[in-house]
């Protein structure tokens, strides 16, 4: 019997981890990635919560794990179909590939912060996203304020594009709270006289070490946590940004002038899957389109009734890096078991 083949769509952490796991189980794998390089969002990241681990230290083992595996970079899969036991992938660049199973690890997109017009992203240079701040930490992006500034004032807005019905996203993006706390501490360490304020709805410190990090930020780094979601950001003189929020614990409105405002952008699905007979189209998600599947429940029917199609990682819903890697491993075993029953 010939070696069974699996096509993996997406070369982010989930796709890379799944590929390595499946290869270790004796399965032949090919990866299709729409971008020019593998690594997903992780490759732009500087440090990871809660221990400030260098992101490249997390990415390198994933990249090393797929050495020797065929990876089609710049290849955007637009359609998949199945005929009997055979799956067929079609990419925008005309690539065709047949396999015994397909694993979708299409991950997430970051929320487009310009959709929250009241925060002035894309209008005021001092308003940046959490992802852009990582690039500043990495030295890949200039700071929007003069670095020699004696005491820069920096604000973080939690839940930008998450828990927001008007953005079509009811869900919590899960990782932004602790990311903001991590980034706030990094700012305080980098600019010792800085003043950092976080505007939050509630702080969701779900993981081990997260609450401790929050405590450290509050007590050791004097990060101010204001319970109130930012209402608006406006330009103040000399390129600064004035923000308005209700300090809900004080029951009073509050205003503050900042040198930089960081928007904690949430996660949105990167791909919308539309099923029609034996064809599945991978399209652009529209307003309010959810993730592909809940991790445990609510698996869409076409995933249940279509043997050989699997999904893993953040395309199922907001997930941290450890979540994603664990899920990729678990789903890889499902894929392996599926292939075993067929052979």
């Amino acid at each position: 019997m010939s070696q069974q083949k699996v096509a993996i769509v997406g070369a982010g952490p989930a796709g890379l981890q799944a590929a390595a796991t499946l290869v270790s189980l004796g399965v032949s794998v090919e990866i299709f990635e729409r971008n020019g390089s593998p690594g997903g969002h992780l490759k732009q990241w500087h440090a990871l919560f809660p221990h400030f681990q260098n992101a490249t230290h997390a990415l390198n083992p994933l990249l090393n794990g797929v050495k020797g595996i065929t990876m089609h970079l710049g290849s955007k899969v637009s359609e998949i179909s199945h005929n009997g036991n055979t799956w067929r992938l079609l990419s925008d660049d005309g690539l065709k590939y047949e396999s015994d199973a397909v694993l979708l690890t299409t991950g997430f997109n970051l929320f487009d912060a310009s959709r929250k017009e009241e925060y002035g992203y894309g209008v005021y240079p001092g308003v940046v996203t959490s992802a852009q701040l990582e690039e500043m930490f990495n030295g890949q992006r200039p700071w929007p304020f003069d670095k020699s500034l004696a005491a820069p004032k920096i604000g973080f807005v939690h839940c930008v594009g998450s828990r927001d019905v008007k953005c079509g996203n009811r869900f919590c993006s899960k990782v932004c709270c602790v990311t903001a706390v991590k980034q706030a501490i990094e700012i305080r360490k980098r600019f010792s006289d800085s003043a950092v304020t976080c505007f939050y709805m509630d702080l969701r410190m779900y993981g081990l070490g997260f609450e401790e990090l929050y405590h450290e930020a509050q007590v050791n780094h004097q990060v101010q946590f204001i319970r109130g979601r930012l209402s608006e950001a406006s330009p103040a003189v000399s390129g600064k940004i004035q923000v308005k929020a209700e300090d809900t614990l004080m029951g009073r409105p509050l205003k503050l002038t900042l040198d930089m405002l960081v928007l904690m952008v949430g996660m949105e699905p990167a791909v919308k899957l539309t099923a029609q007979n034996n064809h599945l189209a991978l399209g652009k998600p529209g307003f309010g389109d959810g993730f592909m599947a809940d991790r445990e429940l609510n698996t869409p029917e076409y995933l249940q009734v279509t043997p050989g199609l699997f999904v893993a990682g953040a395309c199922k819903g907001p997930a941290s890096l450890p979540d994603t890697i664990q899920d990729a491993k678990a789903v890889s075993v499902d894929v392996y078991n599926f292939l075993k029953t067929k052979s």
Partner: peptide, 8 residues
């Protein structure tokens, strides 16, 4: 103004 002025 009732605003809390955090600039001070």
């Amino acid at each position: 103004s009732r605003h809390i002025d955090m600039d001070e």
